[in-house]
C-alpha cells in the first residue's frame, strides 16, 4: 500500500503546480514553483533517486527561484498615487477591508499587461503629488468623481484609458464617475 506521506506529496504536487499557473501575481507563482520543486525532491527520495532529489532541491527550489526573483525585480512597476484630500489619513486596516472598484479595475489592467501595480495612498494635495517623481498615474478622488492624471509619454496610460472607458457603465452603476486627463 502506498504510504500516506507519498500520497500527500503527490496531491501537493498537483495542487502547487495548479496554483503556480493560476495565481495572477508572478512573484507568488515563483514561490509556488519553488514549493513544487521541494515537494518533487521529496518524491524523488521516496522513489529511491537521492541523486536526482539533491539536484532538484539545489537547482529547482533555490537557484532557479533566486534567479526568477532577481529577474522580476527588474520588472516594470506601475506606480499609482491615489489621493483623497478630504480624508484625514489612511489606516492600514481600512485599506485591507475596503478597496474601491476603480482601483480594483486599475489593478486588473496591470495584471493583464504583466505589470506590478504599486498603489500609494495619500491625503496630500494634487499639486504636491504632482511634484513627486516616479508616478505613472495619479488618481484623485472627490466624492464619487475619480480623476485620473497620466502622462502622454507613458504608453500604458492610453491603454488604461481605453480599458476604464469600457468599464464606465459598470462603474456608473456604482455611482462612480471617471475623468481622464492626459498631460
Amino acid at each position: 500500500m502506498m504510504p500516506i506521506v507519498e500520497k500527500t506529496l503527490y496531491v501537493s504536487l498537483i495542487v502547487f503546480a495548479f496554483m503556480a499557473i493560476q495565481t495572477p501575481k508572478l512573484r507568488r507563482s515563483v514561490i509556488f514553483l519553488a514549493v513544487f520543486s521541494a515537494a518533487s525532491a521529496f518524491v524523488y527520495i521516496l522513489l529511491g533517486a537521492p541523486d536526482a532529489a539533491l539536484a532538484e532541491a539545489v537547482i529547482g527550489s533555490t537557484i532557479a527561484t533566486v534567479i526568477y526573483l532577481s529577474a522580476l525585480q527588474k520588472y516594470k512597476v506601475f506606480t499609482v498615487y491615489y489621493t483623497n484630500e478630504k480624508r484625514r489619513e489612511y489606516r492600514q486596516t481600512t485599506l485591507i477591508r475596503r478597496r474601491n472598484a476603480v482601483l480594483n479595475d486599475i489593478e486588473a489592467f496591470c495584471t493583464s499587461r504583466d505589470l506590478e501595480a504599486q498603489v500609494v495612498y495619500t491625503t496630500e494635495s494634487l499639486e504636491s503629488v504632482h511634484s513627486k517623481r516616479g508616478w505613472d498615474i495619479v488618481v484623485r478622488r472627490d466624492e464619487g468623481v475619480f480623476t485620473v492624471y497620466g502622462l502622454q509619454q507613458n504608453y500604458h496610460v492610453e491603454e488604461l484609458a481605453a480599458f476604464l472607458g469600457g468599464k464606465k457603465k459598470e462603474l456608473g452603476n456604482m455611482g462612480y464617475t471617471i475623468r481622464f486627463i492626459i498631460e
Binding site: I63, I67, S70, K76
Partner: peptide
Amino acid sequence: GLTVIFFTFAEIKGGEED
C-alpha cells in the same frame, strides 16, 4: 557558470526609473 548567470540576471538594469 552559475555565478555568471546569476550576476547577469541580478545586475542588468531593467526599466526602473532610478
